[in-house]
Design a protein around this nucleic acid. Structure first.
Length: 450
RNA sequence: GCGGGCGUAGCUCAACGGUAGAGCACUCCCCUGUCACGGGAGAGGCCGUGGGGUCAGCACCCAUCGCCCGCGCCA
């Protein structure tokens, strides 16, 4: 007999079926046993009736996570035992025979739907098992949707997808710390951003994007830092203003949120997650305005600071939420000197640039903005930022031969999920998170030569 | 890097200067309609590790290791 997926069982009422899957739970009533089975498509309640003495015998042996093949019959449930609103709530599998395909050791912790509550340490130490929990699967499916829909919207907007390199020469971009690696007796680094590469590709294809792993050696052990990240990068030419970058970014987020709503309603329900509110027009304010508002409303005077602090980001989001209802806010106009050399300075006020951050629910989701496209201006900045032109010669080559006004943005995929789902820890947004202290298992002892 | 907090059963957590406790999981028993059930019994602990003060420490003090959180930095 062919295997039937659990999701399809509703159309098999009265028929004999073969189901393959895992045992979610056994509810042993003595003379009858209920068993919930799970496959990749859903869950079905099985029941072994008192008359099935042989099956009862088999059923007694089963524990959680045993892998089984079940032969049985699909029945409608008795009238007063139906569960509304859930898959297969109105049917059950009358079990005739069970074949154990694999046994499972007793679980080391509570995997029940409500009882599942582990320290992040226990969770990650047991990843192979915790990955089976519906709440985790819900998060990772939403991460999948985030990455899929980023690709979809980019392609719909005629962006060219390219694969940025992970191995890079000495990095020019300021900011985050980089991982140094040995490379045939020479030095190389893991990329911390496809920034310069996407600008080069943009200069040839007008519009490009990449979905790439990036690596940050920040010695930051926090709930929002990873050392290995999926970066969703976009760059496009022929913009009139930094606001074109903002609008594209907004459109991208809007699309991603729509797709999560469309594809993952069940996952959102399991997680009890409320997606952030994005208005038709996301509020946009300058850094100075943001700092002024924080000063006026919360009385903290950070008006001279070069960027928003963590607390500032929380407060500006509270203010914007109260004023407009939006969970998102764009903040633009950062001190030119504080940001990377390629960010475009405001011509009227060159000490401020046309860089742009998107903040959501108190945390930065992305950075972007307009870039310098004029070769002479770029060279001047390279000089002032004290960057050795030889280290970015390929990048400069592109601009030497003509690049239109352009800009772009980047999201950390895991942080999108973190903020969209209001998770307490970014490690919960990745199946195999890498941080300062963990690569699958906790790192200890041996010092590396790097 | 700086600051704060926590290490007690397989997991999540209580308690208390004087017999170590619960829920879930585990083993066994009971249960014909449960909803990741219910009832009963049992097993399971060098109270992270090392010192110290005390008649007496899981609790107080010091050190050490581990973990978590916040800040900085960043996405």
């Amino acid at each position: 007999m062919e295997r039937t997926y659990i999701k399809e069982l509703g159309s098999k009422i009265g028929k004999e079926v073969r189901v393959k899957g895992w045992v979610n739970i056994r509810r042993d009533q003595g003379k009858m046993i209920f068993l919930d089975f799970r496959d990749m498509t859903g869950v079905i309640q099985g029941v072994i009736l008192p008359k099935q003495t042989e099956a009862l015998e088999q059923g007694k042996k089963l524990r959680q996570e045993f892998v089984v093949e079940v032969n049985g019959k699909i029945n409608e449930r008795p009238e007063n035992n139906r569960k509304a609103g859930i898959l297969n709530g109105d049917i059950e599998l009358e079990i005739l025979n069970i074949i154990i395909l694999a046994e499972a050791a007793p679980l080391p912790f509570d995997m029940s739907i409500d009882g599942f509550n582990l320290d992040i340490k226990t969770e990650l130490d047991n990843r192979a098992l915790t990955l089976r929990h519906p709440k985790n699967q819900a998060v990772f499916k939403i991460l999948e949707t985030v990455i899929d829909s980023f690709r979809e919207i980019m392609k719909a907007e005629n962006f060219f997808e390219f694969q940025a390199p992970c191995i890079v020469p000495a990095t020019a971009e300021g900011g985050a710390e980089v991982f140094k690696i040995g490379y045939f007796g020479k030095n190389a680094y893991l990329t911390q951003s496809p920034q310069l590469y996407k600008q080069i590709v943009m200069s040839a294809f007008e519009r490009c994007f990449s979905v790439n792993k990036i690596f940050r050696a920040e010695p930051s052990s926090t709930t929002r830092h990873l050392t290995e990240i999926v970066s969703l990068d976009a760059e496009f030419a022929f913009i009139d203003s930094w606001t074109d970058v903002r609008d594209m970014e907004e459109k991208t987020i809007k699309y991603i949120l729509e797709q999560i709503r469309r594809k993952n309603p069940e996952q959102l329900k399991i997680l009890g997650a409320e997606l952030p509110v994005m208005l038709e027009k996301t509020p946009t304010i300058s850094l100075r305005e943001a700092q002024q508002k924080i000063f006026e409303i919360y009385g903290r005077d950070n008006r001279e600071d070069k960027d928003l602090s963590s607390q500032d980001e929380i407060e500006i989001c509270e203010i914007v939420k109260k004023e407009t209802g939006s969970d998102f806010v764009f903040v633009y106009g950062y001190p030119t000197k504080k940001k990377p050399f390629y960010v475009y300075p405001n011509p009227k006020e060159p000490e401020l640039n046309e860089g742009l951050d998107l903040i959501c629910r108190g945390r930065e989701l992305s950075s972007g903005g307009r870039r310098i496209n004029n070769f002479e201006q770029l060279e001047k900045h390279v000089n002032e930022w004290e960057i050795d032109p030889k280290t970015i010669s390929m990048f400069l080559q592109a601009f030497k031969y003509g690049v239109p006004p352009e800009g772009g943005f980047a999201f950390g995929a895991e942080r999108l999920v973190l903020q969209f789902l209001n998770l307490p820890n970014v490690r919960q947004a990745v199946i195999f998170p890498r941080d300062m202290n963990r690569i699958d298992e906790r790192l200890e002892g041996t010092e590396s030569e790097y």
